[in-house]
Amino acid sequence: MKVAIIKYNAGNIRSVSFALERLGVEHIITADPEEIRSADKVIFPGVGEASSTMKYLKEHKLDELIVSLTQPVLGICLGMQLMCSYSEEGGVECLGIFKEKVQKFVLPEPNPDLIKVPHMGWNAITNVNSDLFDISLENTFVYFVHSYYVALGGETAATTHYIHPFSSALHKDNFYATQFHPEKSGDVGSKILENFIKL
């Protein structure tokens, strides 16, 4: 089993690496196209701003590479958003693996519950329906930090409610993605990473 974490200017690469270490999963952190292409599993992490990150991916030809991958790929947080068709963050065309668009959370008006953006903290995943999840993970809590979201659609693999329901996970063919951070989501997150590794 060879797991590759795509190395680029993302903030949470080390956290993902530590999470795999805790699971005893050997992995490499690499930007080398051949190493990524030949890996059994690929993780595409992400913390940062969409348009500048997209620019970086293009400059390093990682955009074409990610889209062409045929093994299981897991996008995390910004990684998931970049796998969509378009992001309102910086108004940028993204990888287009998922057809959904990424939109900014708009605070309700009035806002009697003092809802905040970013959506930061632990929230529940429901209607889980991809191989990343098993029934024991229905309605469990995972950790989110994001100001942009993907609406519900045909590729939704888990639903979370914040201001309104949104896609907390997506799935299409060999591409899996979570808006939340499995690497920071305690035992639930570990289980999700484990399920991905076992695919």
Partner: peptide, 28 residues
Amino acid sequence: IAQHINIPFTVGGGISELKDAEALLNAG
């Protein structure tokens, strides 16, 4: 801490420059 703990954590104390923060980010 980052190696052993699977929930988010914040670190503070004596951070006065970008490079202090960057070292902590890189540590996890």
